[in-house]
Each structure stands twice: as structure tokens, then as C-alpha cells.
């Protein structure tokens, strides 16, 4: 079993125009920077991207938006991106906004073999329109379906060649669920190590979910809102 690929370009082999991708990250935290750059380079179009956010104008998924490579975004929050807002309001970009917890659970369900579930989030709002409603313990819930993707692309801090992953800080976010929900899942990591170097007790994503892994060439890890206090 050889999961290790040389670089981002090799990792995204097989991604074609029109496919559905999942991309981990929250804001610019924990996004697969190297694979996004490779997708811009590859030039695939008409992509459906499932990601909590859409990056900023000149970083993250914003880079794919700039090049008009995205047909549809499935996200929970898309502020902080002018080009995104322009494309959405003009109708160039299809956008499916879904509650953040439902997005996380739909990805988790997709990877866990649960086809759908009921949640109270969104009942009585636009999100609930046309969805089956059922009452549990006297409270209304709506039916949400699992999400899967042709490729899921996640970013971790450390990974071993078996695909076991450890995330750092709040860069974990959506990455573990999306790793489970890709038909093929690509992991890019800051540090790729040999089996045995990671303590099995501290693995966040078991390697079974990962098909391809590589060490990213460099990480900018841009900060979206730098907030500090003075000593």
C-alpha cells in the first residue's frame, strides 16, 4: 500500500471539470493551500466545492473563484469575500448555504454510512423549505441528507505514510469529517513521517480514510483577523 505522492500536482491527478470537491478549513485556518494552488494551475472548471467558507479575495478558495473555476459553493458562511458576493448576487455562482452544524454532520454522515438524519437546525426558515419534517419529543426537526464528494482534500499538521493524521489547534475544524466523506481523500501535511513515529493514541484521523498523502511544499498560513493585546 503506497499512499505517498510526490507533490500537490500528483495528488490531484484524476480531478476533472464538473466534479464535486470537499475542502477542509474554517476561514483560512486549516485549508489545503498546496492543493488549492495546484487546482488553479490545473485549470479545472465547473467545480462544486463543499467548504465551510470561500476564502478571501486573494487566498484560499478565493483563488479558484477569481478564475471562475467554481460553479457551485456549498458553505455556511461566505462573508469577507467581495468577488464571491459579486458572483453570487449576479447569479454567476450557485450557492447553497447551510447551517454550519448541519454541514459538519452531513459530511460526517456521508463518511459514516448514515444516508440522512433529522436536526432541529433550520426548521421554520428558508433552509427547511421542502424538507421532510418530523416531531421528536414534541419538537420539529428537518431531514438532512449526507454529503459525499468525488475528492475530499484535507490539511493536517502531521501525517504518516499510512495516512494517519494529527491536526494542530483549531485547524482541525471540518478536516476530520471531510476526510471520511471523499471517494478519494487527499491529505496534505506540514510534516510527513514514517509509521511508528506518531503515537497511535493521539491520531485524529485514522489512515483508512486517506488514499493519498504528501508533505506540502510551503505553508503561508495567512491570518484573516490578527487580533492582539499589548503586554
Amino acid at each position: 500500500m503506497n499512499k505517498v505522492v510526490a507533490n500537490a500536482a500528483a495528488a490531484i491527478e484524476g480531478i476533472e471539470s464538473g466534479m464535486t470537491l470537499m475542502l477542509g478549513g474554517f476561514g483560512l485556518c486549516g485549508i489545503p493551500e498546496n492543493c488549492i494552488a495546484a487546482l488553479v494551475e490545473l485549470g479545472v472548471t465547473n467545480m462544486t466545492c463543499i467548504s465551510n467558507n470561500a476564502g478571501v479575495d486573494d487566498f484560499g478558495l478565493g483563488l479558484l473563484l477569481q478564475k471562475r473555476q467554481i460553479k457551485k459553493m456549498i458553505s455556511s458562511y461566505v462573508g469577507e469575500n467581495d468577488e464571491f458576493e459579486r458572483q453570487m448576487l449576479s447569479g454567476e455562482l450557485e450557492v447553497d448555504l447551510i447551517p454550519q452544524g448541519s454541514l459538519a454532520e452531513r459530511c460526517r454522515a456521508g463518511g459514516a454510512g448514515i444516508p440522512a438524519f433529522f436536526t432541529p437546525a433550520g426548521y421554520g426558515t428558508e433552509v427547511g423549505h421542502g424538507k421532510e419534517v418530523r416531531y421528536f419529543n414534541g419538537k420539529p426537526h428537518i431531514l438532512e441528507h449526507a454529503l459525499t464528494a468525488d475528492f475530499a482534500i484535507v490539511k493536517a499538521w502531521k501525517g504518516d505514510t499510512n495516512g494517519n493524521l494529527i491536526y494542530k489547534g483549531t485547524a482541525r475544524n471540518f478536516n476530520p469529517m471531510m476526510a471520511m466523506a471523499g471517494k478519494i481523500t487527499i491529505a496534505e501535511v506540514e510534516e510527513l513521517v514514517q509509521p511508528g513515529e506518531l503515537d497511535p493514541n493521539y491520531i485524529h484521523t485514522p489512515g483508512v480514510f486517506i488514499q493519498r498523502i504528501f508533505q506540502g511544499e510551503k505553508y503561508e498560513k495567512r491570518i484573516e483577523q490578527r487580533t492582539v493585546r499589548t503586554k
Binding site: Y77, G79, E85, L89, V95, L97, P99, Q100, V127
Partner: peptide, 9 residues
Amino acid sequence: VKGMGGAMD
């Protein structure tokens, strides 16, 4: 349209 984020949940 910024989105609901986690507010609906």
C-alpha cells in the same frame, strides 16, 4: 448574504 454560519444550529 453572508450566510448563517452556526447561528441556525
